[in-house]
Amino acid sequence: MDLFDTFLNAEVMRRSLPMLMQGLWITLQLGTASIVAGLILGLALAMIRLYATAPLRLLARVYIDIFRSIPLLVLLIIVYYALPFVGVRLSPFVSAMAALTLVSGAYTAEIFRAGIEAIPKGQFEASAALGLSGPQTMKEVVLPQAVKIVIPPLTNNSINVVKDTALASVVAMPDLLKQATQAQALAANPTPLIVAAAIYVAFLWPLVAAVSRMERRFAARRR
């Protein structure tokens, strides 16, 4: 069983597991932090994009379009390798989180905007007629309804953020992928890479399946 010894070598697996677990922990930290920060940034951008004065709205639109156009890897390399030239030296973790958040925020903003725009005008009018302020209307009436609509696309976006954390390995971040490539070099055997891939899938498959389930349920309800 040559193939097994090469790709699923039990001994290599055993020895590399602690490294991989350290990497997984960092990947999860980076993913979670970037998702949460991206949600906050995205909500703020959506509010500006929808309700701020005209120049700010334009600014938000330009931001959203730029950060949805720029390849994440390019942005990450700029943050980590170019910013030090102007005196901004960020750690690998902060660089990766910054790049992931900036991009995720742009996508999240568009998701929130679509969700808010899907709320019928009558909901805003009823709130206004009752005397609720704009922020109260958002918090009490619009967002609770919009969040339900945007949970599937937000989950999709979160899956992408977790996957994209693997790019952080190019700025020497000891994430799951980086640890796996190092373990592979140490053992001169690709088993750690296979295990790392399996770990990514094990974490994200349930989320992917959950999104499909939610989308099916939403489609059924609409019918």
Partner: peptide, 13 residues
């Protein structure tokens, strides 16, 4: 001033 609309506009959540 209270208002009642043709389409009710209750808060569904």
């Amino acid at each position: 001033v209270g208002m009642v609309f043709q389409s009710f506009n209750l808060f569904p959540h």
